[in-house]
Amino acid sequence: MTGSPVTSIDHIPVPAAGVEMEVVDGEVLLYHPQQTRAVYLNPTAAVVWGLCDGSRSIGEIIRVLGESYPDADSLTDDVLATLNQLQGNGVLVVG
């Protein structure tokens, strides 16, 4: 695992340095060159990843997703869990 668990929604998540993205027939894979390790993103995680471009805080990401998916239950928990997993896999830095 890399980094502490995400707790503050004011933090801004950004892709870790050098992480490569490959879109395979609509599915998203990330490759971490230092760890020589690939990570497969399910559709939900892929949407969250797409918003982690360094321009939004976690709170803003949750708000954007809330507007797009107004019926989603436990959106905040899901986003935080996804960000924690991405950070744990070393492909995302939250600071």
Partner: peptide
Amino acid sequence: TPGEACLCLIE
């Protein structure tokens, strides 16, 4: 899926 297969190939 192709994405899952790609992940397994990299592994």
